Amino acid sequence: MFAMSRPADDGSEAYRSEIEAAERKVAGEIQPGARAMVVAILVFVLLVSLILPHTGGARGVDVLMGDNKALSVGIALPSRIFVWLALVFGVGFSMLALLTRRWVLAWLALAGSALSSAVGLLAVWSRQTAAHGHPGPGIGLLLGWFAVILLTFHWARVVWTRTAVQLAAEEQRRAASAKNQARTLLEDVDRREENS
């Protein structure tokens, strides 16, 4: 039996693998551009909403911690969940995504902000329909909810916007993959024999 040997590496394979690694890196990054400033401002507004009155005399921080001040005004579970989601996803993942520019973190910030927007609606509604004698939604709750809605919009735009470099790299990878799949086994053997 004859052992088939691989042709000597002429450097093109190493060059190709470097290009593919660079393409994968570019595909995993986001380029928020001017939206980065908008997202940073919205994160700051969201942080400010935590020190403003959430409802009655309870600030967002009081709701976050679930202390006696929050319990005295009848804070319900949706308000506490909203504040935690807004803090974790609206502030935490948004800042991580801006700093690292990773597409996965931006996607998590988008998904968490969208969930937080829906829970924020429930939190506002629960404050508007609170039992008699309990205060309605405060400026902190409303400001935080609007900030999370705007964060969701801007993260959606960032996540689904692909740069021209990313689109060209994806198209080139698809074409190379289609070309490799169309090759037959005999063509591979012929090409190896020519290179040796």
Rank of each mutant, 00 (worst) to 15 (best):
G136F: 07
N195Q: 14
Q128K: 09
K25Y: 12
L77D: 09
H134F: 15
A168Q: 15
V61I: 15
H154M: 08
P7K: 06
L71Q: 13
L77S: 10
R162T: 04
P78I: 15
E13T: 11
A114V: 15
M65H: 10
L71D: 10
V159F: 13
T161N: 06
A40W: 06
A34E: 10
A114N: 05
E193K: 12
G92H: 10
H54D: 11
F82K: 06
E20L: 14
Q31R: 05
G74V: 09
R192E: 12
A8H: 07
G138N: 01
L77F: 15
A22E: 13
A70Q: 08
V45S: 06
S94I: 07
W107G: 03
L87W: 02
L108G: 01
E13C: 01
P32R: 07
G140F: 00
V159G: 05
A169T: 00
T163H: 09
D190W: 10
R80T: 13
W145V: 03
A14R: 08
T152S: 06
R24I: 06
S177I: 02
L167C: 01
G112F: 01
A114S: 12
A168P: 01
R191E: 15
K25C: 05
A36Y: 09
A147P: 01
A111Y: 01
G33F: 04
A164F: 03
G120S: 04
N195E: 14
T161M: 03
L143M: 14
D10K: 06
A178Q: 11
T55M: 13
P32K: 11
A97I: 03
Q166H: 04
A147C: 02
A106R: 07
G120P: 00
A34Y: 01
V148E: 00
D9C: 01
D67A: 10
L108Q: 02
V104A: 14
S113M: 04
I30H: 03
N68A: 15
G136Q: 03
A118C: 05
K25D: 15
A86E: 03
E187A: 13
V26N: 04
V26Y: 00
L115W: 02
A8D: 10
K25I: 13
F93C: 06
E187L: 06
G144K: 00
A40C: 07
F153R: 07
H54N: 09
S196C: 08
A14L: 06
L167S: 08
I149A: 11
G60S: 11
V119N: 05
I139C: 03
E18I: 00
G56P: 07
L99E: 05
W84Q: 10
S79E: 14
L50R: 00
N195H: 13
D190K: 14
A111P: 07
V189N: 01
L105K: 04
F82A: 10
L42H: 04
G92R: 08
L64K: 04
A97F: 05
G140E: 02
W103V: 06
